[in-house]
Amino acid sequence: MKLLTATNVSQGLRGNDFALCVEGELVHIGVVCPRDDGDPDGGCGCARSFAGLNSHRATTTAMVREVPGFTEDDYVLAIRSSLEQQGCDPSFAEHEAALLRCLVRDWPVGVVVERRLHEIVVRQVVQP
C-alpha cells in the first residue's frame, strides 16, 4: 500500500524547513491554526507541515512509500489511534484515510511532497 511518510529528503530546500518526525513515520495533514491561516510561511509552521501519527511532531517534507503488508484497516486504525491520543475526534479517521490514499495514488513511490496551506505539491522525485 502506498502511504505518505515523513522524510528528511530535500530538507533545507526552503529556509524554513523543519523535520521533527521520525524518518518513515506515517503522516497526515493537520489543521492550520489562526496564526498561520492564509500564510504557509507563518511563524507556527502548521500551514506548511505534515503531522506524524506516532510522534505527534511535524515535518515540512513527506515521501510516498510502499508499506508492504499494511492494509486499509491498519491505516484507519493508525489514524484513529493518533487522533484519540491527541484528544481529537476519531470519527473522521476512515474518511481521512481514504483522502490520503487518493492523494498519493497517482504519485510514484519516492515522490517527495511539501505542503503550502491547502495544496500538496511535488518537491522532488527520488528513485526508490
Results as ranks from 00 to 15, higher is better:
60 T>H: 04
99 L>S: 12
54 N>C: 12
38 G>E: 03
13 L>G: 11
50 F>W: 07
67 V>G: 00
55 S>G: 01
6 A>P: 05
49 S>G: 08
100 L>R: 04
32 V>H: 02
125 V>T: 14
6 A>Q: 06
86 Q>V: 02
24 G>K: 08
49 S>I: 04
102 C>N: 15
34 P>C: 05
96 E>V: 14
47 A>Y: 02
63 M>L: 07
24 G>R: 10
17 D>S: 08
10 S>H: 09
91 S>C: 07
47 A>C: 02
25 E>G: 07
15 G>E: 15
66 E>Y: 12
29 I>M: 14
84 E>P: 00
109 V>Y: 03
29 I>E: 05
22 V>I: 11
58 A>H: 13
48 R>H: 11
2 K>P: 07
75 Y>R: 13
23 E>D: 12
91 S>Y: 04
14 R>H: 13
78 A>F: 04
59 T>Y: 08
22 V>M: 09
74 D>F: 00
100 L>G: 04
123 R>N: 13
104 V>A: 11
90 P>K: 09
122 V>Y: 03
68 P>I: 00
27 V>N: 00
102 C>F: 10
26 L>P: 02
26 L>C: 02
40 P>K: 01
59 T>V: 06
124 Q>E: 15
59 T>K: 02
99 L>D: 10
109 V>C: 13
80 R>G: 03
1 M>N: 04
121 V>N: 12
42 G>M: 06
121 V>T: 15
89 D>N: 15
57 R>T: 07
15 G>Q: 12
16 N>G: 06
81 S>K: 15
104 V>R: 09
86 Q>H: 01
87 G>N: 02
12 G>Y: 11
127 Q>T: 15
120 I>E: 04
73 D>M: 04
23 E>H: 10
38 G>D: 09
46 C>A: 08
73 D>Y: 05
42 G>N: 08
46 C>G: 01
24 G>N: 08
6 A>L: 04
47 A>V: 08
38 G>Q: 10
81 S>P: 00
31 V>H: 15
67 V>A: 09
46 C>K: 08
3 L>H: 04
75 Y>W: 09
110 G>P: 10
121 V>W: 01
45 G>W: 03
33 C>N: 13
105 R>H: 14
8 N>H: 13
88 C>Y: 15
104 V>K: 02
40 P>G: 00
48 R>D: 03
64 V>M: 03
63 M>I: 06
111 V>G: 00
82 S>C: 06
125 V>R: 14
14 R>V: 01
49 S>C: 13
104 V>G: 06
57 R>Q: 14
119 E>L: 13
3 L>C: 14
28 H>F: 14
101 R>G: 06
100 L>W: 05
9 V>H: 11
82 S>A: 14
5 T>L: 01
110 G>T: 07
17 D>R: 10
31 V>A: 15
35 R>A: 13
71 T>R: 01
2 K>D: 12
101 R>F: 03
42 G>Q: 09
